[in-house]
Structures are given as C-alpha cells and as structure tokens.
Amino acid sequence: MSISRAWLPLALMTTLIVALGAYAAMRQDAFLTTYNLGNLLLSTMPLALVAIGQTNALLVGGFDVSVAALMTMCVVVASFTLQPDKSWDVLLVGALAVVGVGLATGVFNATLIRVLKLPSIIATLGTLSILEGAALLLRDHPEGFINPNAIEALNAGVSFVPYAFIGVVVLAVLADIWLYRTRTGLALRAVGLDDSSSRRLGMATGRTVFLAFVICSLMAAVAGFYSAAQVQIGSPIIGNYALESIAAAVLGGASLAGGKGSFVGTLLAALFLTEISNVLPLFQQPTEYAQMTIGVLILLALVLYQAPELLARLRTSWGGVGRLRTRQGEAAG
C-alpha cells in the first residue's frame, strides 16, 4: 500500500469530523459547549473500545459479530457485581468478573474458530445468540442499578475531556505504533495478509489468530463498562455495536481480507459515527438518519478505499464474485 493510500482513511475521517463539527457549531449553539463535547467524547467510548477490538479480528482476516451481545452480557453482569453501596474492593472483584466474562467468551470464540475450524462469522453468530439468551436469563427487563461511584470514576476527566478518552487515544496510538513499528505487529499483519507464507516462514499463525479473537472479546468487555456507565442499569438491550464496530474499523481503513488496518483510524471513525448521532438531535432530526448515513458510509468506504483494485477487477477477464472465506483460520497447505 502506498503511503498516501494508508493515510487516506485517517485524513478522510479527520476532515469529516471537523467539517461536521464546524457545520454543527455554526448552526447550533448547543454543539460547541463543554457539556455537549464532554458528552460526545464519553458516548464515543463504548464504540471506540469495541471497534478497536474488532480491528484485531479484522486484521487476522476474521469477523466477530458477537461483540454487541457480549457488551450486553457485560452490562447485565455488571448490574449484579457492581451494585450500589458496595465497597471498592468488592467492586474490583466485580469488575474482574466482567473482564472474566469477556475472557471466557474470547477463548470460546477463538477455540471454535482456530481449533474446531468453524468460519468466524458462523462461530460468532452462534456465540451471539447464546450470549443474548444468557443476558436475558439474568435480566429479562432493565433492572439493577450500577454503582454510581464506579460510574463517576469511569466518567471522570479533566475539564470536559474524560480521562478514559485520553486513555483510549493513547491506546490507539500505541497500538498503531505496535502494529507498524514492531516485530510482533509486523508478524500479525503478515499472518493476516498471507497465512500460508507466514507458516512457511515459521511463524505461529495459530496462536496469532487465537490471541486476536481473545483480545477482541476483552476489548468488548471493557467497552461494556462504558456502556454500563451510560445506561446505568442492567439492561438486556444495548445498541447495534456489531455493525457499528465493523463499520468503524472499515471506515478507519481496515481491510476485510485481513492484514491492513489502523487503530487510530478506527478511533477517529468511531468518533465520527458518534458525532453523527450527537448532532442529529440538535437539528431535531430522527436517529434513523444516523443509521442510514452509517450504512451508506460503509458502502462508500468499501468502494473508495479499494478503488484501484475495483477498477482492476472490472477490467480483468476473470472478475470473480464476492464470497465468504469459509476456511478462515485454516492454514492453506
């Protein structure tokens, strides 16, 4: 990938964020207030975290559609383990329980995909259904408040910028540096780009794919904390994060074929998607427009980011057709 193409998603996302922000700021006074901006950054958190996790799965050439259900599950678990009036050490154990759910889910998904060789889409679809059911079993309607001290701690910040947001920015930057400036990052990209060659070069491809899915679930669990901080109650219905996390990763430059992506790009895209949902109510527009815009943006990004390949595909005699990679995770001999 040429340098300019690698930076295109980042530049595009930044431009869109600034442009939409400028437009909203000019038309609506309510946009450029510390209250609204703080709110925007906080509500970016769940999507940003889960999308960063999703980027891991995409980097090794897979999908994880179970992340939304896992986040719901984490919120529901948190409503039991992070109850009000509990001391900090109890809360810590409770938080570990939530992370544990994420870890267990990650290992379960990774085992299905890497050991039992199921296509990642079907494997995580199954997990999605199971987690949804489990969450409903625990809470069939929203109840059980989340500890307000914990929420406050999660939402704390300097001026209007939450610490957590600073944290996720640092995380994304470090992760990108890791991905593009270290040996293990390079190895991860190599496995995503070409599993067979990587195996010939003596790399542990199986372990890499396994870890990527575990990290994806762990990030979804952490995202669950911020969802919990937002809804503040054990609700069995949490937003449409499966699509939005994939959308953010793709808008941020991740390739569905694996091996390409940027955590910073993902974060910017998550910020932009949240900005859309933040701005629309200011203009008294219904939220459907946000969903439609996201859908259209995904399709545009798919076409725009790989325009040269698409042109080449149309020109070559064997155009081929879009097909799922059902042997995902299985080394091609």
Binding site: I246, L256, P286, E288, M292, V296, L302, L314, G322, L324
Partner: peptide, 29 residues
C-alpha cells in the same frame, strides 16, 4: 455490490440491511 464489485457479502448486506431498516422506520412514522 457483491457479484460485480466483489465486495464482502457480510459487510455489504449488514450495511444495506441497516439502510433499509432505518428507511423503513422513517417511512413508518
């Protein structure tokens, strides 16, 4: 999108599904 442009079926149908669903919600009001 899938047959001619060779885009990934999962992400394409997720996106179109979302667009149509949102459109439907808007229409239904």
């Amino acid at each position: 999108l899938i047959g001619v442009l060779r885009l990934n079926p999962l992400i394409v149908t997720l996106a179109t599904g979302q667009i149509v669903l949102a459109w439907g919600v808007k229409y239904s009001r």
